[in-house]
């Protein structure tokens, strides 16, 4: 395995680890000031961490945990398997694709939430912030794509010798410069002629 592909495999692991870590960080937060009090909502991709609104506003979890972990598993498994089964390298591309899809959807959902809060025309202002979880997921997806590309086998160039071999039945043999004792000398072996004893 070339250095490039080993480096790619290591980066695939890094991207997978970052993706899993991202699911446990805050995905987004919403904050508002109400009568001098600060009300805040925070959620990871698995659960609500803090909800000062006590469910009055329908903020909820953006559930990208399962898809992101699935993508990370596909990437990590392919990186491990690729050391024995080269065909498994395709899995890192699949995992990276999954991760890009998940990250894109998560960002799209956050953007939709921002738009809906704006259209709500509420008397108080809600500040929605993208959390470290989504930011890290985007970074993991970026690293995942780069690493998956590095992890792949580039098409081999056809060597000039191979082209010549395909062109005609010409075979060049390399003979050792220093012949060993087992080879027949160019003028053959001397024939031993025993004298006749008449």
């Amino acid at each position: 395995m070339s250095t490039r592909r080993v480096f790619g495999a290591v980066l695939v692991f890094v991207a997978a680890g970052l993706a899993v870590a991202a699911t446990f960080l805050t995905a987004y937060s919403v904050q508002t000031e109400l009568q001098g009090r600060t009300l805040r909502f925070e959620a990871t991709s698995w659960a609500v961490e803090r909800d000062d609104f006590r469910g009055l506003l329908m903020f909820g979890v953006i559930k990208f945990g399962e898809p992101a972990v699935a993508a990370a598993l596909v990437m990590a498994l392919s990186a491990v398997l690729a050391f024995r089964v080269p065909a498994a390298r395709v899995g890192s591309l699949l995992g990276a694709g999954l991760l890009v899809g998940v990250a894109w959807s998560a960002v799209g959902t956050l953007q939709a939430m921002v738009d809906q809060l704006r259209e709500l025309n509420a008397p108080v202002r809600f500040d929605l912030e993208q959390g470290d979880g989504v930011t890290l997921l985007i970074v993991a997806a970026g690293i995942g794509v780069v690493s998956a590309v590095l992890h792949q086998e580039l098409p081999r160039r056809v060597a000039p010798e191979a082209e010549a071999a395909e062109a005609g039945p010409v075979v060049i043999h390399q003979i050792d410069d220093e012949p060993d004792d087992t080879e027949t000398p160019p003028y053959g072996y001397p024939v031993i002629v025993e004298p006749k004893n008449d």
């Binding site: 591309l93 699949l94 995992g95 990276a96 694709g97 999954l98 890009v100 998940v102």
Partner: peptide
């Protein structure tokens, strides 16, 4: 593979 993976990721999400 990348495109199909991305589509699968979006649908899974």
């Amino acid at each position: 593979v990348g495109g199909a993976g991305a589509l699968a990721g979006i649908v899974f999400f």
